[in-house]
């Protein structure tokens, strides 16, 4: 099984690399094409949020197993300003900038498990898991 990998998110180029790597791991874990694309899309959203709102961060990509099921888990962390009102940030269509405001809420729907922890002034950690069928 692929070892966990920590990847930096410091530029748009890094976001692309993260996406490509996540795709590779999802394929290896036997996720369907639809599920691969979903987790890759979520990775794209969360990596870009870390880049845009926190000026960068990192992601840990690891594989997970639960009985016969295998999946991929992504932990995005940054040391940015944090999210003062998480409920509002998770609302469809809410953006503090000019985005569509669908990145966080949409990602939650794209994956099987979603966990967001944010402390104002300290940073944000988002952990998502997508399981194979």
């Amino acid at each position: 099984m692929t070892a966990a990998r920590e990847m930096p998110i410091a530029s748009n180029g890094d976001v692309v690399l993260v996406r490509q790597y996540v795709r590779g791991v999802a394929v290896e874990m036997g996720l369907s094409l639809v599920d691969q694309t979903k987790v890759v899309t979520a990775a794209s959203e969360l990596a870009r949020n870390a880049l845009v709102y926190a000026g960068g961060g990192a992601v840990r990509v690891e594989t997970v197993e639960n009985g016969r099921r295998r999946g991929v888990r992504l932990t995005f962390s940054d040391e940015g300003p944090g999210i003062p009102d998480v409920d509002r940030a998770m609302t469809d269509g809410w953006s503090s900038g000019t985005g569509l405001g669908l990145g966080l809420s949409g990602s939650r729907r794209l994956v099987d498990e979603f966990d967001l922890e944010s402390a104002p002034g300290k940073g944000t950690v988002v952990t998502v898991t997508k399981w194979g069928r």
């Binding site: 094409l33 691969q36 979903k38 899309t41 949409g106 990602s107 729907r109 794209l110």
Partner: peptide, 13 residues
């Protein structure tokens, strides 16, 4: 493609 359509719809775009 189907997988992209799925993701777009799920995202809510």
């Amino acid at each position: 493609r189907p997988q992209i359509a799925h993701s777009i719809v799920t995202l809510g775009i």
